[in-house]
Simulated assay, not measured.
Amino acid sequence: MTITALDSRTALVLIDLQKGIVRLPTAHPADAVVSKAAELAAAFRKQGLPVVLVHVTFAADGGDALKPRADHPRPPMTLPADFADFAEELQLQDSDIVVTKHHWSAFYGTDLELHLRRRGITGIVLGGISTSVGVESTAREAHDRAFNVTIASDALTDLHLPSHEHSLTQIFPRLAEVGTTEEILAVLAANHLQPA
């Protein structure tokens, strides 16, 4: 697993690093994941590259949540008022793109692709929670849309370690280049960005 290059027009897309999710019991400490994501966000902003912060939330009546029979049943619940607020360490900026989703993928039912295409983005770096759900779903759809995908392996985690490891070792290598935050930052710093 290594990063060979990033496109010159690459966006950082961070999935569900929000207060209501980072408080969940994850396979790796969520604060470490958020810290790595924040490092990436700062570096992308410094390079003038887009940072996309994606969060998930639902209407009070749950009417905008998908309810397929195959999905795990969700008990009725009231979300905390800060459920969808981004983790403070990400330091949301006015220049950041905020995408609100209502299901797993950041592409499904959102304007994410519109934001990326209009900015000439050809590649994305992904991180977030959870690896096997929101991040993997987004990676699959990005790949299907011909974006070059890079996965920040230490800027993501899952609620279940086996699910995280399966995505990281079996699924992502077929869809993306996979490497650490340090490797991605090194490519950015060295300016080894590939023309779109």
Rank of each mutant, 00 (worst) to 15 (best):
H103V: 09
H103I: 03
W104G: 10
W104A: 12
S105H: 07
F107K: 06
F107I: 11
F107H: 07
F107P: 08
Y108V: 13
D111P: 01
D111N: 14
L112I: 13
L112P: 07
L112N: 09
E113V: 02
E113W: 01
H115C: 04
H115E: 15
H115G: 01
H115W: 15
H115D: 09
L116E: 10
L116C: 12
R117P: 08
R118C: 13
R119N: 14
R119V: 04
R119Y: 07
R119K: 14
G120N: 08
I121F: 02
I121V: 15
I121R: 00
I121S: 03
I121M: 02
I121L: 03
T122M: 03
T122W: 00
I124P: 08
I124Q: 10
I124D: 10
G128K: 07
G128W: 11
G128I: 12
I129T: 08
T131Y: 12
S132N: 14
S132M: 01
V133P: 00
V133M: 09
V133G: 08
G134I: 07
G134W: 06
G134T: 13
V135W: 07
V135A: 05
E136H: 02
E136G: 01
E136A: 08
S137Y: 00
S137F: 06
T138W: 00
T138Y: 00
A139V: 11
A139E: 09
R140Y: 06
R140G: 12
R140Q: 10
R140L: 14
E141F: 02
A142M: 02
A142L: 04
A142C: 04
A142D: 05
H143K: 07
H143Y: 15
H143S: 15
D144E: 14
D144L: 15
D144H: 11
R145T: 10
A146G: 01
A146H: 14
N148H: 10
N148W: 00
N148T: 06
V149F: 02
T150S: 10
T150R: 05
I151M: 05
A152N: 05
A152P: 05
S153D: 13
S153Y: 04
S153K: 12
S153N: 13
D154E: 09
D154C: 05
D154R: 00
D154T: 03
A155K: 07
A155W: 12
A155N: 11
L156V: 00
L156F: 07
L156N: 00
T157H: 02
D158H: 02
L159Y: 05
L159T: 04
L159S: 04
H160N: 13
H160R: 14
H160D: 13
P162E: 00
P162C: 00
P162S: 00
S163N: 13
S163A: 14
S163Y: 10
